[in-house]
């Protein structure tokens, strides 16, 4: 009759596969990271608590800097040209949302003029791009330190 052998449970964590996991995660981050180049104009966005996430595919950015210069798709444009540019984009994307990436210190008259041009082009869906309040506070704290 054979004697029953007692099995000893190992208490070690297998670390050999850690490198494989690290490589997999590395490949994921390398393939998904986009080093975004600065586009448009330099702006300090206003802060808002009620900012909602928008569908990226439908968004067209309008940049307005502190001096009131307007840029669409990396090109500085005059106010009167906006409706023409927007109309072309609207034909390709019917549900277009125009996102105002305007500097918080820019004069409201510029934003108002752009909105009038958007109405002419019948681009009625707009979004006032803003930084979430929490993120903006964190950035302010980091700058203070």
């Amino acid at each position: 009759m054979a004697f029953g052998q007692t099995q000893k449970a190992t208490s070690q964590i297998p670390v050999a596969s850690m490198a494989d996991i690290a490589f997999l995660l590395l490949i994921f981050f390398i393939s998904t990271t986009i080093f975004r180049m600065e586009e448009g104009l330099p702006v300090a966005l206003p802060r808002a608590e009620t900012a909602q996430r928008q569908e990226r595919e439908l968004i067209m950015h309008v940049w307005i800097d502190k001096q009131g210069h307007i840029a669409i798709n990396d090109r500085v444009v005059a106010v009167e040209d906006i409706s023409g540019v927007v109309m072309k984009v609207l034909q390709e994307k019917p549900g277009l949302i125009v996102a105002f990436n305007a500097d918080e210190r820019c004069p409201y008259s510029v934003v108002s003029d752009v909105m009038e041009e958007l109405k002419k082009a019948n681009a009625v869906r707009v979004s006032f791009t803003s930084e979430p309040e929490a993120a903006a506070n964190a950035a302010a704290d980091a700058n203070a330190e």
Partner: peptide, 25 residues
């Protein structure tokens, strides 16, 4: 490299206050 990418990756979110303007019609 993993730590570098974890620290630098920002998942870009589009956030804003959405409004519908009155159209021409």
């Amino acid at each position: 490299l993993l730590i570098f990418f974890l620290a630098t990756t920002i998942f870009d979110l589009e956030q804003g206050i959405y409004m519908v303007l009155p159209g021409q019609q």
